[in-house]
């Protein structure tokens, strides 16, 4: 984190200071994001404590295969993103660019798999309306959380993909190094989205199985 920013923007006069401020600011935002998802996890675990069997019954309906593939995809994408940032620091811009496109592709892959899973879930009547396929009413609440959490996570992922496309365009235009601040912030945001997915995956696919 002791690197300096590529391009200075107002009101900074030092690249090192600007990088420090940028990293600090994005972490404040990430702390705030933690609380956003934390609220949902708090609600989930509180309910699960009260309705353990209903929630575990719901968890048995989630598709572990899709979930595991998606987790592997995101972990790999985080790996690629991490390499991208480090490659840029040692001036291997070409490697950085490849890694950014790989990250992007894996993210898109995640959404694709998620889409397939959603189709299957709908086919199995797991949308928690009155046609819901499950005996225990608490399973419906479980699937309320399932759809809400995965959907909100996917929205975050989509935003991350937007930032990655921006980085990709910068890399094409050979201005990636000048925008190393953006690489750092996008990378931190992307990693956080992946950390949240790890928790979502464990909560919805593993804990109740």
């Amino acid at each position: 984190m002791s690197q300096a920013s590529g391009v200075l923007h107002e009101p900074f006069t030092s690249g090192v200071r600007q990088r420090e401020a940028t990293i600090f600011a994005i972490w404040i935002f990430l702390a705030s994001e933690l609380l956003l998802f934390g609220g949902m996890f708090f609600a989930f675990y509180t309910y699960r404590h009260a309705h353990t069997s209903g929630f575990d019954g719901g968890a048995r309906h989630t598709n572990l295969l899709f979930g595991a593939i998606n987790t592997a995809l995101l972990l790999t994408s985080s790996f690629a993103m991490s390499v991208a940032g480090r490659a840029l620091e040692v001036k291997r811009a070409a490697l950085a660019e490849v890694c950014i496109w790989v990250t992007l592709a894996l993210g898109v892959g995640f959404l694709g798999v998620k889409g397939l899973e959603y189709v299957q879930d709908l086919h199995e009547h797991l949308w928690p309306n009155t046609r819901f396929d499950g005996a225990d009413p608490a399973s419906r609440i479980f699937f309320g959380f399932y759809w809400t959490m995965t959907f909100i996570h996917s929205c975050h992922l989509l935003i991350g993909l937007g930032f990655l496309i921006r980085l990709g365009i910068m890399a094409r235009a050979r201005v990636l190094e000048a925008n190393s601040d953006s690489v750092e912030t996008t990378s931190l945001y992307w990693h956080l989205v992946d950390v949240i997915w790890i928790m979502v995956f464990t909560t919805l696919y593993l804990v109740g199985k």
């Binding site: 002791s2 690197q3 300096a4 920013s5 590529g6 391009v7 200075l8 690249g15 090192v16 972990l75 790999t76 985080s78 790996f79 991490s82 390499v83 480090r86 490659a87 620091e89 040692v90 291997r92 490697l95 201005v175 190094e177 000048a178 190393s180």
Partner: peptide, 24 residues
Amino acid sequence: SPRKPPQLYEAPSSTVILGPALVW
């Protein structure tokens, strides 16, 4: 205008991939 960022530490190339790869 873009300026050359001061390189505050030199990371050997191997850690660029190797470190994250191990964690991966």
